[in-house]
Design a protein around this nucleic acid. Structure first.
Length: 432
RNA sequence: GGAGAGGUGGCCGAGCGGCUGAAGGCGACGGUUUGCUAAACCGUUAUACGGGGUCAAACCCGUAUCCCGGGUUCGAAUCCCGGCCUCUCCGCCA
């Protein structure tokens, strides 16, 4: 499918009206953008566009005349005259195009302003807890971490993972694999009950979906790139990319909205710049599987907010079915991604970390992704508008196995299988 | 990977280098007719950006877009080159 040329980033009109809002957004999100430079380039661009269009109009008109002229001498004279214009037009066009080429990369960096109700803060330490569910279990024995449990019970083999693929790699085996798959299947089944359309998606995509969903250019270094290919393709870090970009360059029928998609996919992340962080175990790894939910809805802030609550609830339901203690935090401004207007994280209790660890991330983007993806719909009034998009984890594994194994472990080193997973494991109740 | 064919509006499908933003049909929408529905008839039916206009619209003008990019030309949907995609055949393959 061809890439549409007129693809826009943030709404430049909004930026013109309220540059301070965007400057502030960049500051809050710690993104380097020179908003003043954007404005300067933008107004220069407008001038150049007008100059070009005026010249081109002249040329078009003159050319049209030539077609009507019968007398060959007159015709020759007219052609000579327009020929002189031709160069001017071309130059004007080039000035305009090159200004545009300068502006686009800047525009790609401009962030979506955080919503009013997002708490201010510099990083994840200032996220605000809004809910706790479940009781953190007191142990009357010394609990083991998932790495130890996984190795003892023959579920996880990190050593050999590292041997084959380097750091942050692993094998799951035996019941470890089955548990992993059970979790994914439970999550997917719960989403099917809610009417989401299941999909199997490409995990290797072109640059456009990456850029469109906001993972490029900021964050590019987090992706694995197949640069041997022409054009290059990239491994997605989440099925969000493929699901959200599914309707890229399309104009949807408003009656078909909202679209609710769910996909299970492998996810690949380079984790560049995290050396020394979370090195133990399955917390931060290069490859994992995730069930992801995506909503594409009408351009309506209130509707977006409702869906945000809904997809958060969907994920909470899964964690509750697994009976894992968790909390929900509102992510503060400094921890928001470029395109996110607001985000909730679900953090699930992980005894070895003696803390809640992030397992889910629910984001709403308003039209940020839709603009970059040229993802639109025709509204009931006949107007074409950009969609709103949202996404959330349903479950990501093996990270969630950390919580399951550690919370469900017994004094004798065995692990009880959560009831909700037993149907997927032939009724088995215990590992070890 | 090799050899061919092709990419036009919501869809189908015309299109000679100039008056083609694009015939015709279908669909959709509005209207007339009708006891209701259907049929028939009339009309409307791309998007983006810029300028003008308005309280806001309507509307008017310009530019661009017939897969994308570049070239030839006074002028390109039409000619040439590159790319992407689709289809057919051969090879390879889970």
């Amino acid at each position: 499918m061809p890439i549409s040329p007129g693809r826009v980033m943030i709404d430049i009109k909004l930026l013109r009206e309220n540059p301070e809002k965007y400057r502030r957004a960049a500051e809050l999100k710690k993104i380097q953008v020179d908003v003043a430079a954007v404005l300067d380039l933008d107004s220069a661009l407008l001038k150049l566009q007008q100059e070009f269009e005026k010249l081109r109009a002249e040329q078009n008109e003159a050319s049209k005349q030539i077609g009507r002229l019968k007398d060959p001498d007159q015709k020759q004279a007219a052609i000579a005259k327009v020929s002189a214009l031709k160069d001017q037009v071309k130059q004007a066009e080039q000035r305009w195009k090159s200004a545009e080429a300068q502006l686009r990369p800047l525009l790609l960096q401009v962030p979506q302003p955080p919503d009013e109700d997002v708490p201010l803060g510099k990083d994840d330490s200032e996220n605000v807890e809004i809910k706790r569910w479940g009781e953190v279990r007191p142990f009357d024995f010394e609990p083991k971490d998932h790495v130890t449990l996984g190795a003892k019970l023959g579920l996880i083999d990190i050593e050999r993972g590292v041997k084959l693929a380097g750091t942050r790699s692993y094998f799951l085996l035996g019941l470890g694999t089955l548990l992993h798959q059970a979790v994914l299947r439970l999550a997917q089944d719960m989403m099917l009950e809610r009417g989401f359309v299941p999909m199997t998606v490409p995990v290797l995509v072109r640059a456009e979906p990456m850029e469109g969903t906001g993972y490029f250019p900021i964050g590019r270094e987090q992706s694995y790139a197949m640069t041997n290919e022409d054009p290059p393709v990239y491994l997605v870090g989440t099925a969000e990319v493929s699901l959200t970009a599914y309707h890229m360059n399309e104009t949807l029928d408003v009656a078909s909205l909202p679209r609710r998609y769910v996909a299970t996919s492998s996810c690949f992340r380079r984790e560049a710049g995290t050396y020394g962080k979370d090195t133990a175990g399955l917390y931060r790894i290069h490859q994992f599987d995730k069930v992801e939910q995506v909503i594409i809805c009408r351009n309506d802030v209130e509707e977006s907010k409702r869906w945000h609550q809904a997809i958060l609830a969907n994920a909470e339901d899964v964690v509750q079915r697994l009976k894992l203690p968790y909390r929900v935090v509102v992510v503060c401004t400094g921890d928001l991604g470029q395109g996110q207007a607001a985000k909730y994280d679900i953090e699930t209790w992980m005894p070895s970390r003696k803390n809640y660890g992030e397992t889910h991330s629910a984001s709403r983007f308003y039209d940020f992704q839709a603009r970059r993806l040229n993802l639109r719909y025709r509204d009931t009034d006949g107007k074409v508008r950009y969609c709103h998009t949202l996404n959330n984890t349903v479950i990501a594994s093996p990270r969630i196995l950390i919580s399951i194994l550690e919370n469900y472990q017994n004094a004798d080193g065995s692990v009880t299988i959560p009831e909700a997973l037993r149907p997927y494991l032939g009724g088995r109740e215990k590992i070890g």
